[in-house]
Amino acid sequence: MTDTLHATDNFMPEQRRGSAVMRLALSNELGLAVLIAIAFGAFAITLPGFTSPFSLFTIGRQIGIDTMIGLAMMAVIVTGGLDLSVGAIGVCAAMVFGFLAQKMGIPLPLAAPGAILFGAVLGFINGYTVVRSGVHSFIITLASMSIFFGVMIFLTQAQSFNELPASVQALGKLRVGGMVSVLLLITLAVCAALSIFYRYTVLGRQMLAAGANPRAAELSGIRTGRVIISCHMLTGALAAFAGLMLTARTGAAVPSMAGHLGQDWLLPAFLAPVLGGTLLSGGRVSVVGTLLGATFVTIMTSGLLLMRVGEFWILACLGLMLLLAVLADRFRQQVLRARGMI
């Protein structure tokens, strides 16, 4: 029963009851935007240097990277699954990029798409295994994160590629108008493309339908297996993209850039979409919400760092933030249900 209602929620929003204003007021996006404005205002007033061009540039760059990581996870959460291997895929793709650009001397315009394609291939391996085995993506990607990372460390012998062409690092340092990172602009472009993709393309709509109610989608002629595999491929490609952006920031492809097995990406990967209102049960995405979620997290982290809160305590704060985000989401759904809006 809830499943059917849930599916209509995505495709026929005009049938929902309740005023548009009320819906907007209870949406994640508006709430987040207000929180961002408050946090940014408070830090800007109390912390000198928070709004300096360089500070804004680094914050923007971080937002760009964290949003991309969040989008990568969002693309697979749509199916009601998840991908623990995003970090491993991101690092693997970055290392492939390093190998192509540094060792093989392949020009960057070819090496970068090659690395992203490689990420999509790793995503395909995940998706194919999940669909064919029928085992939950948690355990499959737990295994594949270990395998991808293990193979990468074995092949690279944990050595980084740090003699990349100078233009890679230059891209990471490039500013538009003195304070806007090019990486942020790239992410915004990807956000726009993804919004169009989920809203107007057949495959994008199929992904949402298959996530909301796989049986209904199957019955209406969608080949859910293929759609789920393409979700995993999209996740792989976006994770690879994030890996490349991180490479541009550091100017080198480093095997440890996402921590042991790529685990360090897990929190930003889930935090941004969950804050932004993507349902973990699948079927609903919010690209703008993910962008706002990553923005909020980055502003809080930068502000707390400037306030000299130890970086380790910030880790604990981020965990707490994830907890509060899901609790708030639960509360919001209860309110909406009580008012008959879902």
Binding site: L266, L267, F270, I314, L315, L318, G319, L322, L323
Partner: peptide
């Protein structure tokens, strides 16, 4: 996942 981050952070 949140617990992991909180307890590791502490």
């Amino acid at each position: 996942l949140a617990g992991l981050q909180i307890f590791k952070g502490i």
